[in-house]
Amino acid sequence: MMAERRLSSLGESPLEVEVGPRLLRVKMVLLGGSGVGKSSLALRFCKDEFKASTPTVGCAYLTQVVCLHDSTLRFEIWDTAGEEKYHSVTPLYYRGAHAALVVYDISKKESFMRAQLWLKELEKQYIPGETVVVLVGNKADLSDTRQVPLQVGYRLAESKGLLFIETSAKSGEQVSELLMTIAHRVKQSSSEVRGLIEWPEAECVGVLQGERSSLLGACCSVGS
């Protein structure tokens, strides 16, 4: 069902960007408590901007294309709301994600606890090695009021075999590095374990809706 629906809408979507030899779809989800800076990170990823924001309502969907030397990745980013009232819908977004960013605010200890809860919830869902999970300590610019030491974040990530980075959506520090790292990792792990959905340059409608539907279906069910 889900796969079919995605398929049809995907097939008709316009390609905004020049497509290289291979355009791959990457589903990425941003998780974490409210106010840690998920939307700000997403805005940096997609527009390299920083603006005042209000809490996300439900979920926001954004896309960004990242070019690697041999392929192009189209990140489909689900920026979820950290507020508790929306938690019941969050599984929709991390299910089948190729990358999951669990974000906390280095100046708020409580957000780090929440990040750990998110990691636990994710563990129930993902098959290790299939989803690239990154622990992100955001608001690195607020190191004066830091409540979560760098080592603490690092150790947690290490113990669970996750990637770890500290970023600042405000200053932009480490943000593009984060996205590039994910791009490489996703690409790498997907070539090892499973294929990303390829988005051929021409006649994507026909191709995707026709012969490729089984591939897409398989892909969408991964991790769920």
């Binding site: 939307s39 997403a42 209000t54 809490p55 996300t56 309502v57 979920c59 954004l62 896309t63 709301a81």
Partner: peptide, 29 residues
């Protein structure tokens, strides 16, 4: 009152209470 639909597409459960207080619709905003 939300800036959250400015960037990207919003997708949120929403109850329209005068329509039905029991269930959520899902709004693409």
């Amino acid at each position: 009152s939300s800036s959250s639909f400015r960037e990207g597409e919003g997708w949120t459960p929403i109850c329209l209470p005068k329509f039905n207080t029991a269930g959520f619709f899902h709004a693409h905003i």
